[in-house]
Design a protein around this nucleic acid. Sequence first.
DNA 1: ATATAAAATGTGTTCGAGCACATTTATTAA
DNA 2: TTAATAAATGTGCTCGAACACATTTTATAT
Lengths: 348, 348
Amino acid sequence: MKKYTIKDIAELAGVSKGTVDRVIHNRGKVSKHAFEKVNRLLKEIDYQPNPIARNLKNNKVYSICVLLPDPKKDKYWESCVDGIEEAVQEFFHFGITVKVMLFDPFDQKNFEKQSVTALKLNVNGMLLAPLFQKESLVFIKACEKADITYFLFNNDIEKRETQRFVGQNLYVSGRVGARLIHKSLKNNATVAIIHIDEVLKNATHMQEKEKGFRDYFDELKGVDFEITTYKLKHRNSDNLKKTVKYFIDTHPEISGAFITNSKIHLLAALLKEENSKRCIVGYDLLPENVKYLKSGVIDFLIHQNPKRQAYLGLVFLIEHFLFDKDIPNKRFLPIDIVNSENASTYLK
Amino acid sequence: MKKYTIKDIAELAGVSKGTVDRVIHNRGKVSKHAFEKVNRLLKEIDYQPNPIARNLKNNKVYSICVLLPDPKKDKYWESCVDGIEEAVQEFFHFGITVKVMLFDPFDQKNFEKQSVTALKLNVNGMLLAPLFQKESLVFIKACEKADITYFLFNNDIEKRETQRFVGQNLYVSGRVGARLIHKSLKNNATVAIIHIDEVLKNATHMQEKEKGFRDYFDELKGVDFEITTYKLKHRNSDNLKKTVKYFIDTHPEISGAFITNSKIHLLAALLKEENSKRCIVGYDLLPENVKYLKSGVIDFLIHQNPKRQAYLGLVFLIEHFLFDKDIPNKRFLPIDIVNSENASTYLK
DNA sequence: ATATAAAATGTGTTCGAGCACATTTATTAA
DNA sequence: TTAATAAATGTGCTCGAACACATTTTATAT
C-alpha cells in the first residue's frame, strides 16, 4: 500500500507537479489531454493528499464563534466549554481561532443582542445551541446571507433546509425514559411527565421528549398506565422549590416521574429517602443530580453528553475549513442510560 | 496567543535554530550558558512543537501487530476489526503498518502458536486481548524482552507491573447489572448469575463481574435476594442449547438472570415471550442479542464497546510512536446500559 | 512569415521540525 | 606561540502540498 505524492503522479503522467496541482484543484490552464491523463491516474490510484503537508503551509487563519447559553445561568452548559476547549487544544497549530459568546437562556432579547454581536465578528464559522426557535431561525438566515458556515448542537430547529446538527434524537430519548419507567413499575401505574422551568413556546425539544414518552406507552398492549403532563415554571428558584413541594404533596399517587431536563435535582431534593416502589427518571449528570442518583432518590439519568456534542460540532466545522470535509447531516449521538453504578464511568 | 516556532525561539535567545533543536532534544553539544537561556525561554513561552511539521519529515515506518480472537469463532470480536480499520485509516499518512493476527479463543495452544509468530514479525508495538491469563503473561514478558511496546484491551491480567490497559472496569460492570436487576425486581427474588461456555480457569473477567454483582446485593439492607451461580459450559452449540433448555425447565423460580457474556442469546432463544415480571441482563450488542432486546425477551444489555476499545488501544500506541505521547495507565471506558429503545443509537 | 497574445507547462519557494554536515570558537598539547 | 583537538554553534537540506511566477508552446492577428 504505497503512499503516492503529487510528484509520483506527475512522473507517472509525464507532466510537472504544477500541472497535477492544477488538475487536482480545478484551476484550469491545463490541456484536455493532460487533464484526462492525470485525472485517470488520480482515480486509479485513489490519490489522497497528505493532510500533514497540506496544512503546514496553510497561513490562513479560520475563526469560529460558539454561541451558547451562559453556564452560570444553567449549569447544564458547563461541560460544553470543556468540549470546546478540547477541540481548540487539538487544532491549535492549524490556525483556528475560537471565540465563545454566551447568552442568557431565559432571555430572548439577550440572545438577539448577542447574535447580532456575533455576526459583527466576521467569523468563518458559527456553532450554535438554538434554544430559541424563531430567533435562531432568523440568525441562521443572517449567517447564510453573510456566508458564515453554521452548525447546530443540543437541539434542532424546525423548518430548516440544511441538516447540520449534532445531538441526540429527543423523540427516541423520551422513549428510552418511558421504557425505563415501564420496566421498573410493571403494569398499571400513575406516571407524570414534568417540565420544570421551561419556556415552552421555544422548547420544542421538551415536546419531542414528551411525544416519545407517550408514544412508547401508547404502543403497549395489556397495560394500563395513566400519564399526565405537568409544567412547573418559575424564574425565581425559591418559588420553584415551593411549587415543586406543593406538587409532590398534592400528588401522592404518582409512582413514576419523567423530568424532561436537568432540573430534576429540584424535585429530588424534596423526595429525600430511597423508595424502591417509585421510579424517577431525568436528564444530565450535573453534580447535584449525580448526588441524588447515588443516594437512590433518582433511579436513572439520561446523559445527553453536552461536552461531546459541543466538541463534535466544533470539530466538524474545523475539519470542513481545514480539510474540505463535507459537513455531516444530522449526526445523532448515543443516548446513555445512567444509574448509580455506572455514573462514575461517564464523569471524566 | 502567538504560535512560536523554533526559529522564533532561536532569534529571541540569540542563537541558531540548530542550538535550540539540541536543547529541545537534549542532544548535548551546547554550552551551559546557551542551554539555560534557551531552556528558560522554552518554559516561559510553553513551547509546543508544531505536530504537523514534526511528522512531515518522519520517514520512519512503525509497525504494530494486533493479536485478537478470531471473530469467526466468537462474533463479539467482529466490531474490533472496524475499530482497528478506523485507526489505520486515520493514521495512514503517518507511516503506520498494522498487521492483524487472529487466534482461537477456545484454544490456548493456538494462542501460544500465534503469539510466537507475532513475535517473529519484529514489530514496534503489540496490541493484545489477553484472554488467556498465564499464556498472555508469558507473551508480555517476551515483548518486554524484545523491546516491543505492548498494550492490552478488553480484559486486564493480574500480576503485571505496568498498567497499560483500555477497557471497562468489570467489577463495576457487575454492579451495574445488579442495580438494573434490583431496580426491576424490587425486594425478594431469586436471581441467577450464569456463565455460559467459559473456560473459567482463564476467565478471571467473569469472576470480576460476579464479584461486583454479589457485592452490590451484599451491601443492600432490608432486602432478601437469593443469588446462585451457574456454569453452563459446552463447546458444541447443540449441546449447549440442550443444557440451557434443561436449566430453564428445572429453575422456574428464577426471576432475574445476569449472563456474564455475549452468549445471552442462547438463553434468550429458549425464553421466547416477553415477561414483565422477569429481568434478564446480559452483555454486548450482537445482532442476535439486539433482536431479543427489541422483542422484550432481554431487558438490558451492557455494551462493552469493543470497537472503541480496539480503536483507542491502537491509537495510544500510534500516538506514542509518532508524538512521543505517554502511554496511558488503565483507561476505563463508560459502561453503557442498553435497552430496547436506545439500542439503535449505539449501532453505527 | 512574423509579431503578439493566449494557453499550457514547468520551476522554485514556502511552511516548521529534524537532522546531517560545515564552520567557528575554545581548549589542550607540543 | 602554534598546531591539533574538542566543543560549540551555524547552515542547509528534506518531507509534500500549495501557489506565485517564469518559461515554453500553441493559436491568432497583421
